[in-house]
Simulated scan of single mutants.
Amino acid sequence: MKTPDEFARMMSEKDPNIGKRPEGSFTISQPKEQQKLGGFEYFWAALPLLVLVIGGAIGGLFAALAVTANFAIFRSTKSRLYKYSVSTCVTLGTVILWYVVALLLMVIFPGLKHH
């Protein structure tokens, strides 16, 4: 059986948010506050929502995943160039992925084509 000190050391190695108080009880520190985004960053991160307009349910699914990824990218501590570059790649990848999946569905289910 582990002593409280051994347990505290083991837990602090696994999760840096867990710290040992001097009196021997444990505390969990507050997570770091997320970086606030500016208006243009919100706009840029939400660009994949345009796929929702043209892509229906499949486009909506891909758009939601891409917007979530873009917000995580913009809240990171990387440089602005990195954030905008990767976000642009995510947005373009979303459009390409939606188009490929739509084409595959039309091949698999030929009745989906508009006449």
Rank of each mutant, 00 (worst) to 15 (best):
40 F>D: 11
72 A>H: 03
92 L>I: 11
6 E>V: 01
12 S>E: 05
71 F>V: 11
9 R>F: 09
86 V>R: 06
35 Q>C: 02
59 G>Y: 00
56 G>R: 01
30 Q>W: 04
75 R>D: 04
86 V>E: 05
89 C>Q: 09
22 P>A: 12
48 P>K: 08
34 Q>G: 08
91 T>Y: 10
43 F>R: 00
35 Q>T: 11
49 L>N: 07
11 M>L: 14
90 V>H: 09
17 N>Q: 08
46 A>D: 06
71 F>N: 03
68 T>H: 07
77 T>V: 09
21 R>V: 05
17 N>L: 10
65 L>R: 01
60 G>H: 06
4 P>S: 09
60 G>Q: 02
92 L>K: 04
13 E>M: 10
62 F>V: 14
3 T>P: 05
82 Y>N: 02
90 V>L: 13
41 E>Q: 12
32 K>R: 01
12 S>N: 10
24 G>T: 07
53 V>E: 06
62 F>G: 06
52 L>C: 11
91 T>Q: 14
90 V>I: 15
24 G>E: 05
19 G>T: 12
27 T>R: 04
56 G>F: 02
16 P>S: 07
22 P>S: 15
19 G>V: 15
15 D>N: 12
42 Y>L: 15
85 S>R: 02
8 A>G: 04
7 F>I: 13
66 A>Q: 07
79 S>E: 08
28 I>L: 08
83 K>S: 08
77 T>M: 06
55 G>N: 02
67 V>P: 03
21 R>F: 05
47 L>Y: 02
12 S>R: 07
81 L>T: 05
3 T>N: 12
34 Q>V: 06
63 A>F: 07
74 F>S: 07
17 N>V: 06
67 V>C: 00
57 A>M: 12
43 F>K: 01
37 L>Q: 07
84 Y>N: 11
3 T>K: 15
23 E>V: 12
25 S>P: 00
11 M>V: 15
62 F>R: 08
7 F>E: 10
59 G>N: 01
57 A>G: 11
90 V>P: 11
15 D>C: 10
9 R>K: 14
67 V>S: 03
34 Q>C: 06
9 R>H: 10
19 G>F: 15
77 T>E: 13
26 F>L: 09
25 S>E: 04
17 N>Y: 12
9 R>D: 12
79 S>C: 09
32 K>W: 00
42 Y>R: 14
52 L>W: 12
19 G>R: 15
70 N>W: 08
48 P>F: 05
43 F>D: 09
36 K>R: 07
18 I>L: 11
8 A>I: 14
17 N>T: 10
28 I>G: 00
9 R>T: 07
32 K>G: 02
